[in-house]
Amino acid sequence: MTAIDVQITTRPDGMDTYPDPQPRMGFFTDTSVCIGCKACEVACKEWNHVPEDGLTFTGMSYDNTVGLGASTWRHVAFIEQQRPVGVADGSGPDGGLRWLMSSDVCKHCTHAACLDVCPTGALMRTEYGTVVVQSDVCNGCGYCIPACPYGVIDRREEDGRAWKCTLCYDRLGAGMEPACAKACPTDSIQFGPLDELRERAAVRVDQLHDAGESGARLYGADPGDGVGGDGAFFLLLDEPEVYGLPPDPVVTTRDLPSMWRHAGAAAATLGGLAAASFAASALGDWLGGRLGGGR
């Protein structure tokens, strides 16, 4: 027997519990080629029958969607910066406005806090390694919402249940790519096996660095980060927080064993405290009895 035969081990995302596991699928969103057309937002809403959730004017550049939510599973951020930008014909920096555009989505974390804390098992890991809410099980407890380190999942108030991106689970089963990736005219949203996407993204970052775009960096591509790497990761041109993303997200359940230990110690302390205060009272009773007084 050679070492190769024993390579298959337990995967951190738990996908090997499926009898017929698929390669882990994900998104690579390359924001350097996003043109902010919002075709992804529209395609997602159309395909998934996501209801309208407000038609307001925010004044935030060209972003009236504001952020991800129960009825917004793709959100295109617009950031306006005063920054010298190189021009393609080599005429030098124009010193003008820089627009950053980025299509945000559920990260489909390797270690997904929403899935961990869900008390009904409504949130589950699919055979593609994605994270999906089973809407026929969800009872709207809302625990997943503050658990998510990215602020993705939310409760649809008129419906009472939690909703988020499914990475088009229904389309994946039919061998199709998710609606947003299909609609993206610049291939800013790329869909595929996660391993391939990570390789492609690393090449793209090098390419941008060589072209002088030193701010290019990958976000969520590192399997060693606080959530074990994202199934949907990004190429950003500025700090994550500029795009409304947390700079160093950590899955809250990483600390859960320690939390249970502290809670156990606190429960034992309460028991001890009660026993001690009862002993003090019993002693008082006994002394009171000896001295002939009441309690």
């Binding site: 935030m60 972003d63 504001v66 952020g67 939510g69 951020a77 950031i79 809302g142 919402i145 503050p146 998510c148 380190p149 990215y150 602020g151 993705v152 999942i153 939310d154 409760r155 108030e157 700090e239 927080e241 500029v242 795009y243 409304g244 993303l245 947390p246």
Partner: peptide, 16 residues
């Protein structure tokens, strides 16, 4: 100072 997206929250506050 810190950067944010138009001062919008990163997290979703509990709906409780």
């Amino acid at each position: 100072t810190f950067s944010s997206y138009y001062g919008k929250p990163v997290l979703k506050a509990p709906v409780w």
